[in-house]
Simulated scan of single mutants.
Amino acid sequence: MATVILVRHGRTTANTSGVLAGRTAGVRLDDVGVTQAERTAERLSVVPLVAVVTSPLERCRQTARAIARAQQGTPATATERGITECDYGSWQGRSLRDLAKDPLWKTVQTQPSAAAFPDGEAMATMQARSVAAVRRLDALYEAEHGPGAVWVAVSHGDIIKSVLADALGMHLDLFQRIQVDPASVSIVRYTATRPYVLATNTHAGDLSWLKPAQKRRSRRKSDDAAVGGGAGPAS
């Protein structure tokens, strides 16, 4: 059972100015965003990561570099287009205040599965390609490093929300109920039985319980859900 830690990039000037950055080139972390990325990197430093995978956009690459630098070892690093930002088409670069007046805004809010951005991407397509990328990479890192492997995917708010919705078994039309803040940490463990969502939108707290357990003679832990809730992490 590999585990993926989903990290949203830190805050950017586009976030604070209320502009939908989308795939606009050159959108970087602001000073607060840099601090957020470093804080998240420190929090993750206690977990030996096998890989840090990032969206190709600069704000994610900045965040991913901070995470990789904080590791005691040298995790593999990779760029994955499958987890890049949604293609918002002609909405890109416009203010959220103006976009809220567009009739499509209501569809995005209440029925995102039916939303397709002009000259851009449908939200259902966004979810399908991001979920496929995360599941493919998760299976790859488990095959390479074993069931205790932990890796990070640095991506964007709507991408992470759509991956979490899939893992929770939620219809895409409900994904706006999920909050994913800048530099937040969400955690999913995929198994042959089902995905387990271990955390969403966290900003603090010890993550050392994600360290792979020492190998010992024992039966392989079941992928079944623990009836009654189980005992939780060992520490």
Rank of each mutant, 00 (worst) to 15 (best):
R59F: 03
E142N: 02
R65H: 12
R59C: 01
G120H: 11
T54V: 07
K101E: 14
T74C: 00
A124Y: 02
P75N: 03
Q62E: 15
A139L: 07
G93L: 03
V53C: 12
S95M: 07
M123C: 12
A124L: 12
A122W: 06
V46S: 14
A70V: 05
Q109K: 15
A132W: 03
L44R: 11
G82D: 06
A78R: 15
L137E: 07
Y141I: 01
L140A: 03
T110R: 15
G93I: 04
A114I: 04
P75R: 00
N15M: 05
R136T: 12
R135E: 14
Q71I: 04
Q109N: 14
G26R: 12
P48S: 09
V46K: 09
G22H: 07
D31H: 06
V32F: 00
E58S: 10
A64R: 04
R39C: 00
R59W: 04
V34K: 13
A25N: 07
V27F: 03
C86K: 01
S55Y: 01
D119M: 14
D102C: 10
N15C: 02
L137W: 09
P48E: 09
T107W: 06
L137A: 05
W91P: 01
T107I: 15
S55D: 00
I67Q: 08
R135P: 00
L44N: 09
S17H: 10
R69K: 13
A133R: 04
A139K: 11
S17Q: 14
R39F: 00
L137G: 05
A133I: 05
T16D: 07
A66F: 03
V19F: 02
L29F: 07
